[in-house]
């Protein structure tokens, strides 16, 4: 018999694997970003699930970590998308397979 915590972990690991799938198998740079966002969201779900099923210390560590990780994820998405736009301006493409030069 699986417990509820295990169910949450299974869902979040499924989300993580799907994110990994998107990040590894797609060629468009924005798909890779979407995959990374999925993985981060799965990690957040884990933090909250462990906080809820743990001994609930004061201060609520799991909730705090989740809040900070959401903030960091927002910063990551901003910079990532700015990079995508910069790369697109330069190469006229966002296909990561074509970005194989070190020289600009």
């Amino acid at each position: 018999m699986t417990s509820t915590l295990q169910l949450f972990l299974i869902v979040s690991s499924a989300l993580f694997s799907i994110g990994l799938l998107a990040a590894l198998s797609r060629r468009h740079a924005i798909f890779i970003l979407i995959g990374i966002e999925l993985m981060l969201a799965a990690a957040n779900l884990n933090f909250i699930a462990f906080w809820r099923f743990g001994s609930q210390p004061q201060p609520p560590v799991g909730v705090m970590v989740a809040i900070f990780s959401i903030a960091i994820a927002a910063a990551e998405a901003t910079v990532g998308l700015a990079l995508v736009i910069a790369i697109y301006r330069h190469y006229r493409s966002t296909n990561v397979d074509q970005l194989n030069q070190l020289k600009g």
Binding site: L24, S25, R27, H28, T94, N95
Partner: peptide, 16 residues
């Protein structure tokens, strides 16, 4: 830039 995705990258699927 509409990327034409040529087939599926099976390596990624297997790893995932």
């Amino acid at each position: 830039d509409i990327v034409s995705e040529r087939g599926i990258n099976w390596g990624g699927v297997i790893v995932a």
